[in-house]
């Protein structure tokens, strides 16, 4: 059995009085891609943002339950949130590169962590950009603004930026929904490459994307997990009626 990197038990989330998540139990295996699918507003993105505490930024949010990263409760009072986010990186729906050069975007996290050695930064930039499958496209213009790139390229630079700080887990919130099909395919292929080194948790609107690249899939509906299983099993032979209806496009 594979090692579980993140486990969550009975996770509830309230926006004020509204209960957006009603008791989520999930576990994420090391070096697997887990997809979370479901209709809009089902709570899959909300749940994703619990895992690196991005919901802390939103006022009036209350979270109960137990979420552990390698056996440590990440909502314990003594948790270093900054350190947590270095371990659990995140890629957003809209590419959000900083208005700096491509190179500076990628090494930004390292620089702020105090690494000044030019050779070390250069190497990290190259490794990360290669891992994010964009090195060949940008190697001759590393010092141009990242904003001059196309959306798909920007997204891969953002992924490289996350890879550079060497997280264990990468959260991805619909990373390809703002991109064209070719860019999406490039990113999907890259994720399959990254799987051997990282634990990837992916929220996607796109069922086909989930079926193509994920090892496991969780189906969210109205704030709960209806079904969580191996992707192949779930797509071929869903246990729940609701899952079957959703996969067949009968709602959502």
């Amino acid at each position: 059995m594979k090692k579980q990197v993140i486990t969550s038990r009975d996770v509830h989330l309230f926006y004020g009085d509204f209960e957006a998540l009603t008791g989520i139990d999930l576990a994420f295996n090391e070096h697997e891609i887990t997809a979370m699918i479901g209709p809009s507003g089902c709570g899959k993105s909300t749940y994703l943002r619990i895992l690196n505490r991005m919901n802390d930024l939103i006022p009036n949010v209350k979270i109960t339950g137990d979420i552990e990263l390698e056996g440590k409760n990440i909502y314990a009072p003594d948790t270093d949130v900054v350190q947590l986010r270095k371990q659990v990186g995140m890629v957003f729906q809209q590419p959000n590169p900083f208005p700096f050069s491509i190179y500076d975007n990628v090494v930004y996290g390292l620089r702020l962590a105090g690494i000044k050695d030019r050779a070390q930064l250069d190497e990290a930039a190259e490794t990360s950009l290669k891992a994010a499958a964009i090195w060949d496209e940008v190697k001759d213009k590393l010092h141009e603004s990242a904003l001059s790139l196309s959306g798909g390229q920007q997204q891969r630079v953002c992924i490289a930026r996350v890879l550079a700080v060497r997280p264990e887990v990468i959260l991805m919130d619909e990373p390809t929904s703002a991109l064209d099909p070719i860019s999406s395919t490039q990113i999907e292929n890259m994720l399959l490459e990254l799987r051997s080194q990282y634990t990837i948790i992916l929220v996607t609107h796109n069922m086909h994307q989930a079926s193509r690249i994920s090892d496991k899939t969780a189906f969210f509906l109205q704030g709960r997990v209806v079904e969580f299983d191996d992707t192949k099993k779930m797509f071929l032979n869903p246990k729940e009626k609701e899952t079957e209806d959703y996969l067949n496009g009968r709602f959502g």
Binding site: V82, F98, C158
Partner: peptide, 17 residues
Amino acid sequence: SFAQREAGLALGLSRWE
């Protein structure tokens, strides 16, 4: 935009950074 702040925080920068 808020996305820029999120990007910074998600990269493990403190709020001040």
